[in-house]
């Protein structure tokens, strides 16, 4: 077994750091401290931290913060950014209003009306 796969109970209380307030994800206002606290509690990957903190879940879907956050998490854990995983990009590539998605023309096309 790779010892790095093992996760155990955190040791002691989280000790705050001076630069905990620094924001990493501006859309969802996730700070370095939020991430450190999550790491302290045993979370390890980018996705786990995303689910816990909403990091990268805002309007830009992580366009700006993913790179910063991966680098920060990797630094905190002492590993390479590639080892903390990558959030999955999803459709729509840019936010789209519901009504636009709804009127995608497929039903009209099927009814022979085309678009």
């Amino acid at each position: 077994m790779a010892e790095s796969n093992r996760r155990k109970a955190p040791e002691g209380e989280y000790v705050p750091k001076a630069d905990d307030d620094l924001l990493i994800c501006r859309c969802e206002e996730v700070s370095q401290g939020d991430i450190r606290r999550a790491l302290h509690q045993g979370l390890r990957t980018m996705n786990e931290i995303k689910r816990e903190t909403r990091l990268g879940m805002g309007l830009c879907q992580g366009q700006t913060c993913t790179r910063i956050a991966r680098a920060f998490i990797a630094r905190e854990l002492g590993v390479a950014p590639g080892e903390v995983g990558l959030p999955t990009p999803r459709t729509p590539a840019r936010p789209v209003p519901m009504t636009v998605i709804a009127r995608d023309g497929i039903m009209d096309e099927a009814a022979g009306e085309g678009i």
């Binding site: 879907q61 519901m98 039903m107």
Partner: peptide, 30 residues
């Protein structure tokens, strides 16, 4: 994966019940 038809079908169903959600942006489908 997601399918190209699912989000449109979902949005049509929602708007049928909540037309005022029209301009609400979908940011992600999974």
């Amino acid at each position: 994966v997601t399918k190209s038809n699912t989000a449109p079908a979902t949005c049509r169903a929602i708007l049928d019940y909540f037309p005022w959600m029209e301009r609400t942006n979908v940011v992600r489908a999974w």
